[in-house]
């Protein structure tokens, strides 16, 4: 039989000769009726895919949701306070993008979408146009027929990776949805008198403190409210970020996102951590990051 490599090479030749393609060149379409056993695209990594597969799920497609949003006029900002126009724009745009992702998931018969990534891009440097993209891989239990009652009306979305999703299932939890909280806050500029009073001292800028504190709490309470609405037990993988986008230094978006989870009825604690030595390192896959680190260290010295 020969080595694994020899078997792989010879069976590969059979496959390729069968379809008569030159490697890398797109094959001409075979006709419209060719979707009997269509191939499935996924952006899961090999690790994620194999683990999702292990947990009894199969990928059913790389799914997208896109919302290009026009952000309305903001007017003159004074004082500490939330910028409602921006808060609602950023939340609605993200909800639109994830909503479309969910709609696509329903269309392909997925019960959920894992590894959801949200990205925002400003279009052409214009501050009033932003593109929100949600990308993830739809999954469904293996062997489940499409369009039966086993498919939930609203597939869950989760920002967790395939690995984390598998771990979550093993721990006896199920994701119920993506929850978000958004708050865009304007932080008051210092008046000339305050500036004169404080510029030579080391003191707390209490106006800033209260503004940033309030804004972050607002974002988190909104996330909490969303989780409550989903009847979740908890929220895992919660991240908070502070983004200034294109608004300069005094307008800040606080964005909290996480995955709401609920426990399975027959849950037991049976996660046992194990030690692993990975044969992969990131030298090749992300040369930029390594380089950047070196540079930073050098600067610090």
């Amino acid at each position: 039989m020969g080595s694994i490599a020899a078997q792989l090479v010879s069976s590969h030749e059979d496959v390729v000769d069968h379809t008569k393609t030159s490697a890398g060149a797109p094959v001409p379409p075979t006709g419209s009726g060719g979707d009997v056993e269509a191939s499935v695209t996924t952006d899961l990594s090999v690790d994620e895919w194999l683990l999702v597969d292990d947990s009894g799920y199969e990928p059913c497609g790389l799914l997208f949701g896109v919302a290009v949003f026009h952000i309305g006029l903001v007017g003159v900002l004074t004082g500490n306070g939330e910028v409602d126009t921006l808060s609602s724009a950023l939340l609605r745009a993200r909800e639109l993008a994830t909503g479309k992702l969910q709609a696509e998931a329903r269309r392909v018969g997925a019960t959920g979408v894992v590894g959801v990534r949200l990205s925002i891009d400003q279009l052409g440097g214009k501050s009033h146009l932003a593109r929100f993209m949600a990308i993830g891989t739809g999954i469904r239990p293996k062997g489940a027929a499409v369009g039966t009652e086993s498919q939930p009306a609203t597939p869950f979305l989760t920002a967790l990776s395939g690995q984390e999703f598998a771990l979550l299932l093993r721990g006896g939890f199920l994701p119920v949805g993506l929850v978000m909280g958004v708050c865009v806050y304007h932080v008051r500029r210092l008046g000339p008198l305050t500036w004169l009073r404080t510029y030579s001292q080391s003191i707390e800028m209490s106006a800033y403190t209260s503004a940033l504190y309030a804004a972050r709490e607002l974002a988190m309470v909104r996330l909490q409210a969303e989780a409550l609405g989903l009847q979740a037990e908890g929220v895992v993988g919660m991240t908070t970020s502070e983004l200034s986008h294109v608004w300069g230094s005094h307008v800040i978006e606080f964005f909290a996102m996480g995955t709401a989870i609920t426990s399975l009825p027959d849950r037991q604690d049976l996660l046992d951590p194990t030690f692993v030595l990975s044969a992969r390192d990131n030298v090749v896959s992300d040369p930029g990051a390594i380089l950047g680190d070196d540079e930073r260290t050098r600067d610090d010295k």
Binding site: S39, T42, L44, M133
Partner: peptide, 21 residues
């Protein structure tokens, strides 16, 4: 990607899509 169908039921492992507007 999917229409370059080679063998039935095969899986395509994709990297993150690059979008340019």
């Amino acid at each position: 990607l999917e229409r370059t169908s080679l063998s039935a039921g095969s899986v395509i492992l994709a990297a993150t899509p690059l979008v340019h507007v």
